[in-house]
Design a protein around this nucleic acid. Structure first.
Lengths: 216, 216, 216, 216
DNA sequence: TATGAATGAGTCTTCATTCAT
DNA sequence: CATGAATGAAGACTCATTCAT
């Protein structure tokens, strides 16, 4: 079936794959270079040489430096979404308690951000992105909140007048706190495990404590 | 009365102020330019022309682009510190309840970050600052946490095994959540007042709910 | 024979040469520009356009303006060394007399300096060179003195208590006098050939006259 | 007599002197600054502040940076001329021998150039001077040669077919050799006193040895 | 298709000079 | 006359992007 195609294309790998490999190498290199130098100082030449391809080849696959950043961000969005769904699935299957679930979530996000502390900020703040990408990001965040809500809803101890809002806040809290901690680890002041525990405690309290919506 | 003296110094403003006015104009312009273009794309020429002075004048007052960023950050640290102390004083004098106090705090921070949504992150993340400035920032954050703790401690309903850690988390939560909301206002999804209320609710729960330090 | 291979590489010149041609063009242009404007006023843009390349290309081959000057100086050192050795070889083979030998030497140096009257001084005096380059130059001068001594020693009429010192003085005298004459040709006052003759006469007298080392 | 004038000008010093003091201060400062930083990097602001006057005052007395260099060069020419005549007078009065006279001359020039090793080169080579200044310099050099000739002629042991040419060469030799030695003291290789002795030896030989004008 | 030399607009920064006070 | 803040042209250098091979 693919044999005939192969004959027309007697390379070791099918064209599609070759491209994919190159694109992947470039994106990986871009991740590393941006992470290390920031967006402005992360030059396309550095990315190309880190990827092991020529600058010309890089521009064969991406029309501009910005396009690389956009691709990176799109990939990031997809990845995060995947992870989130995997986590939810895992929690459901394993029948973890709420507290364990939250702990898993917070620790997982902290780990991701620790591995690439700057990338997200670089893509979100330093890169001049087209509006549609920003929109995509917002949508992704709202979907994420919904996904989290889907899991949270399963726990009977949760009390919330509006689960959507609650979960939006939870998602944002975890995102921003773990990112911040990863970017500037104040390990001297508060150790990592304590930090995770405290955040989980806050989320648990928020979700389970009976509290009037405002004042009282 | 002062007319005669004025004649000896017919400047509109005393010399001291002239410099200060220029410096202020530059810093204000830098704020706007960085806010609009980021650090790397915020060129010194743009800052100068936005400030209404020549590029030469800019370099008379600041030896380098970095120096402008440092000045901006130092000013930001001082300002934040002032505001925080003012807030604490206000709360103590007015004998506000904990919930109102937190509401004030969150709303205040959100307002600050709304006015300059990107600046803080730009200074913190995009600008290659000398180590001592980073240290100063960390110190400032820890002091802020202590200041918050000083106020929180006055409320008998607060339950916390370690107030220092708790307040550190609270400070970071408010900082990062308000900044995030200001930077990418998801107004469509969750309105501003609701957002503030939810955050306050979370903080209240965290501070007052009796909850084992971990698991249970 | 090589025709088929050539077709695989249809460039007018092999790659290696292309770079070399460019580098040479830049160095030649730098020589002319420094010669005409001095080091400080010899801008890299001027050098580039004189070389017929873009400023970007210039910086592809030399990391800084200083690097160009260093390259120029190194080339100069090598060239001078070559010429000196050639001259010595020539003298030995041709069995010239001392007077003719000195005449050749002086006339040769005068010619070199006439072609580039300012360059040497510019490189030595106006350019802030790294220490190792200065060291290299000193070494080169001392080697030159030794080379001269190697030849001088062959002439039995030479009387000198310390040939090393004598030849050092001779080398410096020829260097500085010919350079000075070339830089500010006082042709009106003393014609070129007379100048050379007089210098040779002085050197001959210095080398051959019996004279007490001091006073007497 | 001058009293009446004084009353019209009740300053501590007459106007003329005040100006002169300021001009002198500027020229002295320029000497030091050029010596330390070269012409291009010797900024007018640095000169002014070194002179203890404002940049505005500097431009009240000199219309441009170049004018300062010209004034410096003119002063240098005058000074050198003075020194030369003093030396000649001294030699004549003291009835020194030729050898001592030359020794005095060489040692004196070496001392001058040692005190300001770069200044002369800076003025002559780095500064883009108007043609008339170059002419003045040439004239000064030729006058100097004549002055030297005037002294040399008094010594009966001197043999020279053309004293003018001989003395021109002598003047240039001493100028360039001492300047070169002062600029790059190769003390390690040849000590200062030895250097002076050798140069004197060469000059003595040149002046007193009977030698055919060329070849032989 | 891959390559990488070449391009040049744009960046930060300096400094001679002016002019209002 | 003295001052020094302000000016802006110009210089060294970078880097996204193109195109001939």
């Amino acid at each position: 079936m693919t044999a005939r195609k192969q004959r027309l294309n007697p390379r070791k790998q099918p064209i599609q794959n070759r491209s994919k490999v190159t694109v992947d190498a470039i994106l990986l290199a871009a991740t590393q270079v941006f992470e290390a130098h920031g967006y402005a100082a992360g030059t396309t030449n550095r990315i190309a040489s880190q990827a092991g391809v020529s600058i010309g080849t890089l521009y064969q696959y991406f029309p501009s430096k910005e396009a690389i950043a956009v691709a990176l961000l799109e990939r990031h969005i997809t990845d995060t979404d995947h992870r989130l769904h995997e986590w939810v699935g895992h929690m459901v299957v394993e029948r973890h308690g709420l507290c364990e679930a939250l702990h898993d979530y917070v620790a997982g996000m902290l780990e991701i951000h620790t591995r690439q502390p700057r990338l997200q900020h670089i893509l979100l703040e330093e890169t001049p992105l087209p509006e549609r990408v920003h929109q995509a990001l917002l949508e992704a965040e709202q979907n994420a909140a919904k996904t989290v809500a889907g899991l949270i809803r399963l726990y009977p101890e949760v009390r919330s007048s509006c689960l959507e809002h609650t979960c939006f806040v939870i998602f944002q809290t975890v995102e921003s706190l773990t990112h911040r901690y990863a970017a500037h680890p104040d390990d001297q002041f508060i150790p990592r495990t304590t930090f995770v525990d405290e955040v989980v405690k806050m989320l648990m309290a928020y979700l389970t404590c009976d509290m009037p919506s405002m004042a009282g």
